[in-house]
Design a protein around this nucleic acid. Structure first.
Lengths: 388, 388
DNA sequence: CTCAGTTTGTGCAGTTGCTGTACAAAGGTA
DNA sequence: TACCTTTGTACAGCAACTGCACAAACTGAG
């Protein structure tokens, strides 16, 4: 029901998830009290996972706990455990990689976008993905910078790519054949990756915002589940209204947050209105690498606008952590003061005004997130997935 | 974890919930395919519920299914099943009632607020509640028009009552003794009631907004669970920013939605700035009962402002139904056009622009919701609760 | 009135996934 | 070496389901 990304309710999956979140290695005792089950159940569960070929147990390689007592066994993801292929269509490149349990990127490559059109891009993507798919690959996860409808993988607005509504999952299925394929929004997936492996670890209610190219993306993770909404479109923070009398947004509305606070907004404040869409990210990168006084002033302005939106979101989401990914993280690190003070002013309650804000930690959060998407069935029901 | 109101994961609780949502009576066959379990499990489960004294099974009182086949048994909430006491502190009155499974209000009374102060009000409330508490009462649910911190029942801003931050649960526990007591925000509870018994039934992602007195309240229900956020403060739709250059809000920020779209905003548009807070609701009621041309014009304006906020929320929540409670429902019914068109303009995606909007159905949604709160432990784990 | 057809309830054997307890193993420390 | 601590293991037990075979209760055609 609701078909989203969920924390597994099965204990077997929970052990696997705990091991996965720990980076692929954990002591048996750590796993035991992370799940809060008895030691004997853990024995049963690890036995099962071992039988499935998912883990390796090192009975001697125990770590000294520091204190006395019998050292715990060391549990590791088996080298022969299945992997997934993750893919990510970015502004002017696409990347594909193989990722295993524990969130380790095993191999990875990046390819230029040959054409602005969807068909050719998907042709290229599919051929690279196919070359990554081999035995032991459970499925493919694809991240795109558009909202994605959960029910059928339709992407209604791959705006920055100039694509019209595209039935992405269908088009990729045609090209990839029978490999299990999942498609989702890049910001949602980045949030999931930061939640499991990065700056969002341990949060009970995570609010994530990011800018990678043009526009703003975001996501919320609540008790381990990505909040997807009825269709999968939830959390489009770029399109909350910040000023109804403001500038026209490409979405048709006016005064949207992303018009005021994305890469283009920053460049506009600096008088740079002639930058081509493909160069935006690189240009911003260069400016932030060695920021001048005027750049810092622009950053402060953008951060203030962002924080107005952030406060609205904080009042709605009630997060216990806010992670700012991509460029937003860098902007925040440069000028955290205005964000904090604006949030303090506009948040409805003091508990909300003090929500911790941290920049993202992962260099490759989107690709990792795409892998999470493809790994999810295994985490939900290890036995079920491997029964074939 | 997260300690919120959740759909029970236990089958026994799920049967009870299904029966509860059906209004206290359902055929055994209905329950069976609502839960998607085998007929034999249902036999086991109903046997358990019968043993607990929660239900009555009528083996003859079967309804004709219309088609052939053996008629199904009729399952009803037992008259001797436990009940809960629900309470609701409103603008100038408080109400208390007894509510049973199925959402039936068994008895109910309303009392004037003797004083604007918290202590005296809680004294009065506690003495009335105590008179309702008898054998077979499982607990007390209390609804207040303030956000409520889940962890300790602290109400940081009972604004319209002029109360400062109040440790509500603690204060009520002192007065009530050992009865299980839960406190939550009135809008959240109203949403829960509409979701289970009213206009929100069957929605997978419900967005609820309401005005009862001053300010705007709201809630989101996702796959049966109330979205409470990290502290319990989630979804304060009244304080999303609609216009940063707008009027000062009592929360300290500017241009909040509720300043533009609540009862006071409507009266202000009509030049009525001298209405005392206690009379606001009655005054609006009177105006809407026989609306003049100028009232309708004001309603259109308020609705437009509301819809701007609604669009922001729709872009974040991605609901498949929007329920407008209290006066908002009436305003919408009077002038639905501007709401629909503004939403269509400002929603990011067409799927979102077409989200169905319906007015609330329940006259007593807040009180019913408070009952849901108190009933929740029983629905989560019937056996556990009744083992004493 | 009988008999097929349909839907529904019941009894029972079997499985899964856990809990609890008792005990053995593996380390440190006095 | 004895003792303490922490950890892994074996085994019996149990709740909560699933699946199957069969009985019950109705409708309607012949």
């Amino acid at each position: 029901m609701g078909g989203g990304i969920q924390a597994p309710r099965d204990s077997l999956g929970q052990v696997l998830l705990a091991l996965h979140e720990a980076g692929g290695t954990a002591s048996r005792a750590e796993l035991t009290d992370r799940l809060g089950v008895g030691r004997s159940v853990m024995g049963y569960l690890l036995g099962e996972l071992d039988d499935l070929g998912l883990i390796t147990i090192d009975r001697n390689g125990a770590r000294t706990a520091g204190e006395g007592g019998r050292p715990s066994h060391l549990v590791t993801v088996s080298p022969s455990a299945p992997t997934v292929v993750a893919a990510h269509i970015d502004a002017d490149t696409f990347s594909v990689g193989t990722v295993g349990l524990g969130g380790r990127v095993l191999s990875r490559s990046e390819h230029p976008l040959r054409s602005p059109h969807a068909t050719e891009t998907l042709d290229d993507l599919a051929s690279v993905v196919s070359s990554y798919v081999r035995d032991g690959v459970l499925g493919v996860g694809l991240a795109v910078s558009s909202p994605v409808r959960t029910s059928d993988g339709f992407a209604p607005a791959a705006l920055h790519m100039g694509w019209p509504g595209v039935p992405l999952r269908e088009l990729m299925r045609e090209r990839l054949g029978s490999v299990p394929l999942q498609v989702a929004n890049n910001a949602n997936l980045a949030a999931l990756a930061e939640y499991r492996h990065g700056a969002g670890r341990g949060a009970t209610q995570l609010l994530y915002l990011t800018t990678a190219h043009v526009g703003l993306g975001g996501a919320t993770i609540s008790e381990g589940r990505l909040f997807t909404g009825a269709h999968g479109y939830a959390m489009e923070p770029g399109h909350i209204t910040v000023d109804p009398a403001g500038a026209l947004c490409r979405c048709g509305s006016t005064g949207c947050l992303e018009v005021e606070a994305d890469h283009l907004a920053l460049l506009r404040l600096l008088g740079l209105t002639d930058v081509s869409l493909r160069d935006v990210a690189a240009r911003v990168d260069a400016l932030l690498a060695a920021p001048s006084v005027s750049v810092l002033e622009a950053v402060r302005q953008v951060n203030t606008r962002l924080a107005i939106g952030l406060a609205s979101l904080a009042n709605i989401v009630d997060a216990d952590r806010i992670v700012l990914g991509g460029t937003l993280g860098r902007l925040y690190t440069l000028e955290p003061g205005v964000v904090r003070s604006t949030l303090a002013e506009r948040a409805f309650l003091t508990d909300l005004a003090h929500t911790p804000i941290v920049p993202g930690e992962l260099a490759d959060s989107v690709l990792l997130g795409a892998a999470e998407l493809a790994l999810q069935p295994l985490l939900d029901d290890p036995r079920g997935v491997l029964k074939n």
